[in-house]
């Protein structure tokens, strides 16, 4: 369970201009759970209680982009002043009230079965002086937070991976990684939602379709979710396989 950290002062942050329709709120440049909590809490607050002219917000590891329509903002609130200034004042207010929000962010625990047969599994074991079974056991031993989704529709950046199995990505990315492949890049772990080029070290494959355009929601994972990987056999993998065709 997450403990609520009382914030006596607002956390340090910086607001900059991404462009004339988006401001960027940056809480740092780190992969850090406490920082990511603030990003996701701010995203939740804006999404739940949008202001006139708000379009959407995009949470990432340590920063959030807030997209708005300057024309709508001006019509509704500040006909002659700059929409950016007005939106900035809203962000500052929201961040001040984040303390109450932070503990209330709902987090799902999602279990993801993986058939650990990845092309890089043995290489990682060899590098780290472990057996493949130990690499699998370490990968399954903890839950991971979905820090953010990006790169591809539904690609969840998760962490942090145990340092005993953390390996850098391939210098030359593979031209095709199969949809469902589970990989490691540094202290991050992730799942490819589509066949795509990719440089992550592949340890296995999930039979689940983590992105499905015809489903609601389209993504199995959302920012802030917790993920538990479990190891499954080849037979179970084949029985549970959800990907179309290929």
């Amino acid at each position: 369970m997450k403990t609520k950290v009382p914030l006596i002062h607002s956390p340090p942050y910086k607001i900059s201009v991404l462009n004339e329709t988006a401001l960027l709120v940056s809480f740092g440049n780190l992969i850090d759970t406490a920082i990511n909590d603030r990003v996701i809490a701010l995203h939740a607050s804006l999404t739940r209680d949008p202001f006139p002219g708000f379009i959407e917000s995009v949470p990432t590891y340590a920063s959030l982009a807030l997209f708005y329509d300057p024309l709508q903002v001006r019509i509704n609130r500040a006909p002659h002043a700059s929409a950016a200034d007005f939106v900035e004042s809203i962000i500052r207010q929201r961040i001040r009230s984040l303390q109450a929000e932070e503990g209330s962010v709902h987090k799902n625990l999602v279990t993801i079965p993986v058939y650990y047969n990845g092309e890089d599994l043995e290489w990682i074991a060899c590098q780290k002086k472990l057996t493949s079974e130990e690499v699998i056991a370490i990968h399954c031993a903890r839950t991971y937070r979905v820090f953010m989704i990006g790169f591809l529709p539904g690609f969840a950046y998760m962490g942090a991976v145990d340092q005993r199995i953390a390996v850098p990505r391939h210098a030359a990315p593979r031209t095709k990684v199969k949809a469902g492949s589970v990989g490691i890049a540094g202290s991050q772990t992730g799942i490819y939602p589509f066949d795509s080029p990719g440089g992550w070290q592949l340890i296995g494959q999930t039979p689940l379709r983590i992105f499905n355009a015809n489903k609601n929601p389209v993504c199995l994972l959302a920012p802030g979710d917790e993920v538990q990987f479990i190891s499954i056999s080849k037979e179970k993998f084949e029985a549970q396989y959800e990907h179309p065709g290929s």
Binding site: L18, A22, L30, V58, T60, F67, M148, G150, F151, L152
Partner: peptide, 28 residues
């Protein structure tokens, strides 16, 4: 660390060249 981008964002690539993101850009 990865952070949001938008159409029109001009990124500096490791080789010193620039890229302007267009309509079908990645989100981060």
């Amino acid at each position: 660390v990865s952070s949001p981008v938008d159409a029109g964002t001009v990124q500096l690539l490791p080789d010193g060249n620039l890229i302007v993101l267009m309509a079908d850009h990645q989100t981060t």
